[in-house]
Design a protein around this nucleic acid. Structure first.
Lengths: 234, 234
DNA sequence: CGGGATGTTGATGGCAGTCAAGCTCGGTGG
DNA sequence: CCACCGAGCTTGACTGCCATCAACATCCCG
């Protein structure tokens, strides 16, 4: 079912998503071609190598973008949160696999129709350009991490990023994050093994930087300063 | 001195650069604000952290884009060849350092003026979007390399990329590349040490995959198949 | 011819990967 | 209610790859 314009105006990511910074006319064009879809945890949106048929906005949830080598080793090259854009307009084949890490809601556009709207709405294309440049900056920062930082720097930095992304405002003191991804996904993201991630986390617990309530995947950041020190050693 | 439109039409990268896929009007706007500049090997175009004052097209040469950690470790996050675009429109501060690896010619635009032209030339902005998306794909492929591949896979893959970029068409047999960068730069690019790069290269020589004429920085690719096998182990 | 930058080769060590065993927890069914 | 099971996580012992440290070779340029 098509999304009525009014639904767009009520959208949870109205302010942060690509469609947020765009005029009423362009919004109407977008809403005319958008369809809502919910992905269960673990479900795949697009496969690397398949025809590139769709673009989307993330309305809720978390997805991973993965690339893999010919012999099957996998690397998470990006994480997508609410408000993020998914997809590669103007390319025929998808080069990455996009998978939901938790149940996620998307607003999906057929790729070719999305491209047509882009062509008619320079403001939208501009917004997409800015987002893509921001993604490129993220990617460069990740290259720096993957190339130059050790295991504990990666973990500490990752936790800080996660806190800033999911629990904004919490400036000082204890700060909890419901870490939404498994140890395995953390490992794939940071290019470490599950065992190393686990060891570093227990080490952080020992230092009093975090608490790991047993059972869930929650991580409590108890001392941000320690994490910052570990993420940026002398 | 401003570049006359006729000079743009004669430009060495007329076909491959950003300005190549653009109409005559937009080209005129661009040429009105462009200035030529030559950078010697080792000279820096922009420093990370400085105000982001310019964008450019690479007319000739090779430049490196580097990011670095707070404690000074450095990672090359991209290489720029003739025809590539340099810069980050719409951001106030430069997050990366751009340095010429060999003497390079650039066509430089003041950032804010370039942005204005972008705003008036949707075709140009579209072309830039495509380029930025391509860069993002490159970055993702590099993340895969940095995260998942071993030293010899990195070296072999790098040589193959370099051959394809600098010596197109050479389908089979021996293929030479005037490797334009030092061992140190190769190491920074691949996140290895100089010693590891050197060892892997002599190993490739031993396997007959490459020849390393003494003296220069030239590398002769003798057996592409070996490199491909090493770059993609079972 | 000399000196500095760049590259090669060798010896050693450390960090994270691998292999393996055991733990925790949630779910299922007897 | 409890026994069982499997997925995810933790912990330990060992290994291996690449970084580090060090010595030497080579090249370039005055």
């Amino acid at each position: 079912m098509a999304i009525a314009s009014t639904r767009c105006l009520d959208c949870a990511v109205r302010d942060t998503a690509l469609c947020g910074g765009v005029g009423a006319d362009d919004l109407a064009s977008l809403s005319a071609i958008g369809r809502r879809r919910t992905l269960g945890a673990g479900q795949v949106l697009t496969w690397a190598g398949d025809a590139n048929l769709l673009c989307a906005n993330v309305v809720a949830g978390i997805l991973k973008v993965t690339a893999s080598t010919a012999n099957g080793r996998e690397q998470i090259v990006g994480l997508l949160f609410a408000g993020d854009f998914v997809g590669q307009p103007f390319t025929e084949d998808s080069t990455v696999t996009v998978t939901a890490l938790v149940e996620s809601d998307l607003c999906i556009y057929p790729r070719e129709r999305f491209e047509r709207v882009l062509g008619e709405a320079p403001g939208l294309e501009h917004a997409l350009l800015r987002r893509t440049m921001a993604s490129l900056n993220d990617a460069r920062e990740r290259m720096l991490t993957l190339g130059q930082r050790g295991a504990q720097e990666r973990i500490a930095g990752f936790l800080l990023d996660l806190v800033d992304r999911t629990a904004p405002g919490g400036a000082g003191g204890a700060n909890s994050i419901d870490v939404p991804i498994s140890r395995g996904d953390m490992a794939d993201f940071l290019a470490l093994t599950i065992e190393t991630v686990s060891r570093q986390l227990t080490r952080l617990k020992g230092l009093g930087a975090v608490a790991l309530p047993r059972g869930g995947r929650t991580i409590l950041v108890r001392d941000r300063a320690i994490l910052e020190a570990l993420a940026n050693p002398a």
